[in-house]
Measured scan of single mutants.
Amino acid sequence: RSRTTFTAEQLEELEKAFERTHYPDIYTREELAQRTKLTEARVQVWFSNRRARWRK
Score class of each variant (00 low, 15 high):
R1L: 07
R1Q: 05
R1E: 06
S2R: 07
S2G: 09
R3H: 10
R3Y: 15
R3Q: 11
R3F: 14
T4C: 07
T4S: 12
T4G: 06
T4D: 07
T4W: 05
T5E: 15
T5Y: 12
T5Q: 07
F6M: 08
F6R: 05
F6Y: 06
F6T: 03
F6W: 06
T7P: 03
T7C: 04
A8M: 08
A8L: 10
A8N: 12
E9Y: 11
E9A: 10
E9Q: 08
Q10V: 05
Q10S: 01
Q10F: 02
Q10I: 15
Q10C: 04
Q10E: 01
Q10R: 02
Q10T: 01
L11A: 06
L11R: 08
L11D: 11
E12M: 12
E12V: 08
E12Y: 08
E13V: 10
E13L: 06
E13W: 05
E13H: 12
E13Y: 08
E13D: 04
E13T: 07
E13I: 15
L14C: 04
L14T: 00
L14Q: 02
L14R: 03
E15M: 03
E15T: 02
K16I: 05
K16Y: 06
A17D: 03
A17I: 15
A17M: 13
A17H: 00
A17G: 08
A17F: 06
F18Q: 02
F18W: 14
F18G: 01
F18P: 00
F18Y: 07
E19L: 09
E19W: 03
E19M: 11
E19V: 08
R20M: 14
R20S: 10
R20G: 09
R20D: 07
R20L: 11
T21Q: 09
T21V: 10
T21C: 14
T21H: 02
T21I: 05
T21N: 05
T21Y: 03
H22P: 12
H22C: 07
H22M: 14
H22N: 06
Y23P: 04
Y23V: 06
Y23Q: 01
Y23K: 03
P24Q: 00
P24L: 06
D25W: 03
D25H: 02
D25Q: 01
D25G: 05
I26S: 14
I26N: 07
I26A: 15
I26R: 09
Y27F: 11
Y27H: 10
Y27E: 13
Y27P: 13
Y27M: 09
T28R: 07
T28A: 15
T28Q: 13
R29L: 14
E30S: 11
E30A: 12
E30L: 15
E30Y: 13
E30F: 08
E31M: 05
E31H: 08
E31V: 08
E31A: 12
E31W: 09
E31L: 11
L32V: 08
L32K: 00
A33Q: 05
A33N: 02
A33L: 03
A33I: 04
Q34S: 13
Q34F: 09
R35F: 06
R35I: 07
R35Q: 06
T36Y: 01
T36K: 02
K37D: 06
K37E: 06
K37P: 01
K37T: 05
K37Q: 13
K37N: 13
K37V: 03
L38C: 13
T39Q: 01
T39F: 06
T39W: 00
T39M: 05
E40I: 11
E40D: 08
E40M: 15
A41T: 06
A41F: 05
A41V: 10
R42N: 15
R42D: 15
R42G: 13
R42P: 00
V43Y: 07
V43I: 06
V43G: 00
V43D: 00
V43T: 01
Q44C: 13
Q44E: 12
Q44G: 12
Q44L: 09
Q44Y: 15
Q44M: 14
V45E: 14
V45W: 11
V45N: 13
V45T: 14
W46K: 01
W46S: 02
W46E: 01
F47V: 01
S48L: 10
S48W: 05
S48P: 04
N49Q: 13
N49H: 06
R50W: 01
R50Q: 13
R50C: 02
R50T: 03
R51L: 06
R51P: 02
R51F: 04
R51C: 03
A52Q: 09
A52M: 09
A52W: 09
R53G: 12
R53A: 14
R53S: 14
R53I: 15
R53C: 10
W54C: 14
W54E: 15
W54I: 14
R55S: 11
R55Y: 10
K56H: 10
K56M: 15
K56T: 14
